[in-house]
């Protein structure tokens, strides 16, 4: 009941889906449509998971007055205010909801990632070392690609963008194809393990 039935559902549906992939007939498509309409009806509830876990993590912090608990108040307040504004005034253009998105969420998440440019620069200076011949080749290839991508590289010599393009088109292609085939096989293997019930960690521990 706790583990067996969900596992049976996965395996049963899984094999039906294997069949569906090979059978184009109307019946097979109808089965798929049925599954879609059901999973569509299930999907909206998943968001509750996210909300609850956020409330649990930050709620406990506030309750226990853990260090920096005040920031948890910020998170929960922001969540409630944003969600509320969406329900109260709608999600159209010109509503507070979209204002929050455009002026709070958008700039911050963009900035968060742009911090990395600074880290890369400092890592370039402090950590990127040609420790081995392999790492040296890696850095050299990186130099050429970096210069090949910018106007200055082309201005120095036409040779630079062309070599950069060659690196991308030839050795990079071979590398990515070799790795991708392996990863593709790994993905297939993982799907297969789930399908056969070998892999069941996704069901969580008891």
């Amino acid at each position: 009941m706790k583990r067996q039935i969900p596992l049976i559902i996965v395996i049963g549906l899984g094999f039906l889906f294997v069949a569906h992939t090979f059978i184009p007939s109307k019946t097979s498509v109808d089965f798929y449509d049925w599954w879609v309409s059901w999973s569509k009806a299930i999907s909206p509830f998943a968001v509750v998971l996210g909300i609850l876990s956020l409330f649990m993590v930050h709620g406990t912090k506030i309750q226990r007055k853990a260090p920096n608990w005040q920031y948890s108040v910020v998170t929960l307040l922001a969540l409630v205010v944003t969600a509320f504004s969406g329900f109260a005034w709608g999600t159209n253009e010109g509503t507070p909801f979209l204002w929050l998105f455009a002026n709070v969420q958008m700039p911050m998440s963009a900035t968060m990632f742009s911090l990395l440019a600074f880290y890369i620069a400092s890592a370039a200076y402090k950590a990127f070392r040609a420790k081995s011949p392999q790492a040296t080749v890696l850095l050299l290839a990186a130099f050429i690609v970096m210069m090949g991508q910018v106007p200055i590289g082309a201005a120095i010599s036409k040779w630079i963008p062309e070599t950069a393009q060659w690196i991308l088109n030839v050795p990079n292609l071979a590398a990515k194809r070799g790795i991708a085939t392996g990863v593709g096989l790994g993905m297939t293997a993982t799907s297969l393990k789930i399908l056969l019930g070998i892999e069941r960690t996704y069901l969580g521990s008891d």
């Binding site: 922001a78 969540l79 944003t82 969600a83 998105f101 969420q105």
Partner: peptide
Amino acid sequence: LLVGVSMGY
């Protein structure tokens, strides 16, 4: 704030 707004959104 970012964590809260993005979830609330």
